[in-house]
Amino acid sequence: MISNTLLICKASHRLPSIVIIGLLFLVTAFNGAVADTYKKPIRVLIVGGGSSHDFDRWYKKVDTQTLEKRKFSEVRYTDNTDSIAHYLQDTDVLYLTNNQPIPNKEARKAIFEFARQGKGIVLGHAALWYNWQDWPEYNQKLVSGGSRGHDPYGKFQVNIVDSKHPLTRKIKSFSLEDELYYFKSDASGPGIKVLAEAVNPEKGERFPSVFIINHPEARIAAIALGHDGAAHELKAYQRLLRNAVSWAAASQ
């Protein structure tokens, strides 16, 4: 960029000032685009596996493609929860999507230590359920709540309620077919900030659909959508996911 700018400056006595300003703008934009293209990808660990969802198809395959597009991220996927502690050593953002148990004490400890260190976490769909009665600290401290039920699979509206937050910026309200989770915040947890709400089409009830957890150290984002391809292949969902990972990684 410096050499290009010098060339423009040397020629400045032969060019109108408005042309010089325009050339400088183009050089700056070009160099910025190159820098963005070759910036270091975000290292993401996706943890999947469990019941009632096709984790391999929608998380291992489609979400990985969404996140690795244009070298935005480098993704590692595992459904072996015993491997979490090992993989977190080389991870920027942990993306939990599983509803299978995490019985390994070292894995549980590593997740909480990851959060304590101020790292990024994204919680997807099934990971926002009350899955594990023997691990209440997960829902209380990392999720600040959870879901114990949902509407039958069907179409509903997702309304953006905070369009200025990095997760939802430039995303308009949309509709899709999915499971509308009845997420409820736990008053004993750190609390949440709702960015988008899912609206029950019959009763008009509203539930958090995209939100962040007010964790004291970590950046934790949550997306309650994601049962199948109607969500994962939707442009709005894909942008939300990339925004969530970008925002979660920004603390580092």
Rank of each mutant, 00 (worst) to 15 (best):
F114R: 03
P16I: 01
A222N: 04
Y87E: 10
R76A: 07
I42D: 00
A249C: 11
I223V: 07
Q65R: 06
D186Y: 08
N104R: 02
L195I: 04
R239G: 07
Y181H: 12
K164H: 05
Y59E: 13
K60T: 10
Y181N: 11
L241N: 11
W58R: 11
N139Q: 09
V194W: 01
N243W: 00
L15E: 02
I111K: 08
D82G: 15
Y77P: 09
D178A: 13
D63K: 05
A218R: 05
R14P: 06
H125K: 02
E205F: 13
Q100M: 12
K235H: 13
I212M: 10
R242K: 14
S12F: 10
L24E: 00
I2L: 05
R206I: 06
F183M: 07
Q89E: 05
D56W: 07
Y130S: 09
P208V: 11
A249V: 09
T37Q: 10
G149R: 15
Q238V: 04
G191P: 01
A248L: 03
A218K: 06
D63P: 08
I111V: 14
K184M: 13
V199P: 14
K119A: 05
G49H: 01
A29M: 12
V47C: 10
K164W: 01
K109Y: 10
P136S: 05
F174I: 09
V122C: 07
A244P: 02
P101S: 11
T5P: 00
A198L: 00
R239D: 14
S175L: 01
N200Q: 10
N31F: 15
P208F: 05
F183A: 09
P166R: 03
I84D: 01
I20W: 02
L241R: 13
S3Y: 04
R14W: 03
L7V: 06
G189A: 11
E202A: 13
A230I: 07
D56Q: 10
G124R: 00
I20S: 00
D178G: 12
E68V: 03
Y138W: 11
K164A: 12
K69C: 03
P201M: 06
W132C: 06
G226Y: 06
S185N: 12
Y182H: 15
K193W: 01
A33D: 13
F55L: 09
G22F: 00
L123K: 10
S251R: 13
S173D: 04
